[in-house]
Design a protein around this nucleic acid. Sequence first.
RNA 1: GGUGCCAUAGCUCAGUUGGUAGAGCAACGGACUGAAAAUCCGUGUGUCCUUGGUUCGAUUCCGAGUGGCACCA
Length: 299
Amino acid sequence: MQKTLIVILGPTGIGKTDLSIDIARELDTEIISSDSRQIYKELKIGTAVPSNKQLHKVNHHFIGHKSIYDYYNASMFEFEVLDLLEELYKKYNQVIMAGGSGMYINAVCNGIDELPSIDKQLRNDLLQKYLDEGIESLRIQLKMLDPESYQKIDLKNPKRILKALEVTIQTGQPYSSFLTRPKKERPFHILKIGLQRDRNELYERINKRVDEMVNDGLVEEARRFFNDRHLNSLNTVGYKELFEHFEGKISLSKAIELIKRNSRHYAKRQMSWFNRDKEISWFHPENKQKIIDFIQNNI
RNA sequence: GGUGCCAUAGCUCAGUUGGUAGAGCAACGGACUGAAAAUCCGUGUGUCCUUGGUUCGAUUCCGAGUGGCACCA
């Protein structure tokens, strides 16, 4: 029988967790989380990981399997998930992947080009150059070293330019030459299920969930990592706002308000990302039977 | 009941010496191949409370009404 990866995606707070557990039980299978922040074992409350009770109902992977002190990225996720899928498909014909990190989902479904890992010193030097001399100096350097990327890249986005420069300098070959963009073939069928609901309703759910996180101890969770606040893994909605509060820059209620707003903005960005993927079939998350029927008809 | 002040974007407010209006926040749209809950780009969304008057022209000036606030009764 054909192997299928059932991808359940949608913006934060839409209801992916509950639905994916229901579907996993229906299909008697396991769940891979495609969430770039639930990966970190230290971040529980603020990333809305499934409860222990939920984790007991269905086997979950990639939740809390790295530390915030580890370096992690979409490419590593791609290969780790593919390895795990190979194992899981010995037991199951369908596996569920649920989460809202578009780039991680794409890495698994389509693959991303292989790039060399970047020397830490080089990365720091380039970052320092950016901080000292500004983005214009990066642009000039990129134009010289990799004119093709210079044409394609968003030249106002420092991260994009830094990435291109890192790779170009590290390898001596232009970053653009690495981006061959083949859609990698996967030995399994992919079925993408997108969840959507009324915008106002989604925003109310997000606001409410933030209040619940605060009640559950989010402030204390964040305070524990205040000294590590510079880590990329903690550049995360729900934590960065509280760090501002701990630094005395904003009040607690202001921080909570900002967490709600930034979560809404994040949800919007996720929707922008998913909207252009024509392979997604869209459903309301409470329309469980319809989704199950759809899956049964397409595996 | 009387007097005064106010009424402009979702909110708080600015402004137009009369030529249909703008700021902050919120909101909205988008990009995105190794930091992606990151990073970056773009967009004013408006019966200027209603209604008469003056005027070529009123959101702006005048009158009345309605609503809100304050004070006096």
